[in-house]
C-alpha cells in the first residue's frame, strides 16, 4: 500500500511541475484573460506541497500549517475572482460576490478562533471547496445559456473547471472523514489513494486544457 501511495504522490508532484511549465509556455495565449495569474497559483501549489514536506521534515509544523492556510485563502479567492469575471449573468455574479464574502468570514473566523499557526483551517477549506463547486455549476449554467458551448473544448477555463469540479466533489467527503473520523489506522490509506488519484485526474484535465486551448482575448 505504501509503495502505491509513494508512486501516486510522486506522479502528482511531477504532474504539478509539468502543468506549471506548460502554463508558462502557453501564457501568451491567455495573458489577457482573468486566468493570467494561473501560473502563480500553480507555483504557490508546488511551493506549498514541497515546502510543506520540507518544513514537516524540519519539524516546523506550525510554519507548514501557516503556509497552507494562506494557500487556501489565495487559491480559493483567485478562482472566485476568475468565475466572477467570466460569468456575464449579473445575478450569478452577485451570488459569487456573496459567496466570496462568506468564505472570507470563514477565514476570519478561523484566524481568530483557530489560530493561523496552530491548526489547519478545515472549515475555511471545506467552505471554500463547496463554494467553488457552486461557482463552477453557475459557470456551466452560464455556458449552457450562451453559444460558448460551441467552442468550449478550446477554452482553458472549461478544462480547469472540470478538473477542479471533479477534484472537489471527490475530495470534500474525504476531507470531512479525515478531519472528524480519523484514527491512526492503515485503512485510512484507501482515502489517500483516492485523494492522490483525484489530484492526478485534476492535473490531467489541466493539461488537456492547456494543450487544446486557443487564444482568447
Amino acid at each position: 500500500m505504501e509503495t502505491i501511495l509513494k508512486d501516486l504522490e510522486n506522479i502528482f508532484l511531477a504532474l504539478y511541475v509539468i502543468v506549471f511549465i506548460i502554463s508558462i509556455l502557453k501564457f501568451p495565449l491567455y495573458k489577457n484573460t482573468p486566468l493570467k495569474f494561473l501560473p502563480l497559483i500553480f507555483f504557490f501549489t508546488i511551493l506549498a506541497e514541497y515546502l510543506g514536506k520540507y518544513l514537516t521534515h524540519l519539524g516546523k509544523i506550525h510554519l507548514n500549517i501557516f503556509v497552507h492556510n494562506i494557500y487556501y485563502l489565495v487559491h480559493f479567492s483567485f478562482f472566485f475572482y476568475v468565475f466572477m469575471k467570466v460569468i456575464d449573468n449579473i445575478r450569478f455574479k452577485k451570488y459569487i460576490g456573496i459567496c466570496l464574502g462568506v468564505f472570507l468570514l470563514f477565514f476570519f473566523n478561523d484566524t481568530v478562533f483557530t489560530g493561523i499557526f496552530e491548526n489547519s483551517f478545515t472549515k475555511t477549506y471545506i467552505a471554500g471547496a463547496g463554494i467553488l463547486v457552486v461557482c463552477i455549476i453557475l459557470y456551466y449554467v452560464n455556458i449552457l445559456q450562451s453559444s460558448q458551448v460551441l467552442v468550449i473544448k478550446n477554452d482553458l477555463l472549461f478544462w480547469v473547471s472540470v478538473g477542479l469540479f471533479l477534484f472537489y466533489i471527490g475530495y470534500i467527503p474525504i476531507k470531512i472523514i479525515r478531519t472528524w473520523f480519523y484514527k491512526p489506522d492503515s485503512f485510512f490509506e484507501i482515502l489517500l489513494i483516492i485523494q492522490f488519484s483525484l489530484i492526478i485526474i485534476m492535473c490531467l484535465f489541466f493539461l488537456t486544457g492547456f494543450l487544446w486551448m486557443k487564444k482568447k482575448s
Binding site: L166, I169, G170, I174, F181, D185, F187, L191, L198, I201
Partner: peptide
C-alpha cells in the same frame, strides 16, 4: 464505524465522479 464510512466513501466517490462526467 469508521471502516464502513471509508468503504462507502471509497465506492461512492469514484461512482459519483463517473456519473458527473457522463452527465456533463
Amino acid at each position: 464505524d469508521e471502516k464502513e464510512i471509508i468503504i462507502i466513501a471509497a465506492i461512492a466517490i469514484p461512482v459519483t465522479l463517473v456519473i458527473i462526467v457522463i452527465v456533463l
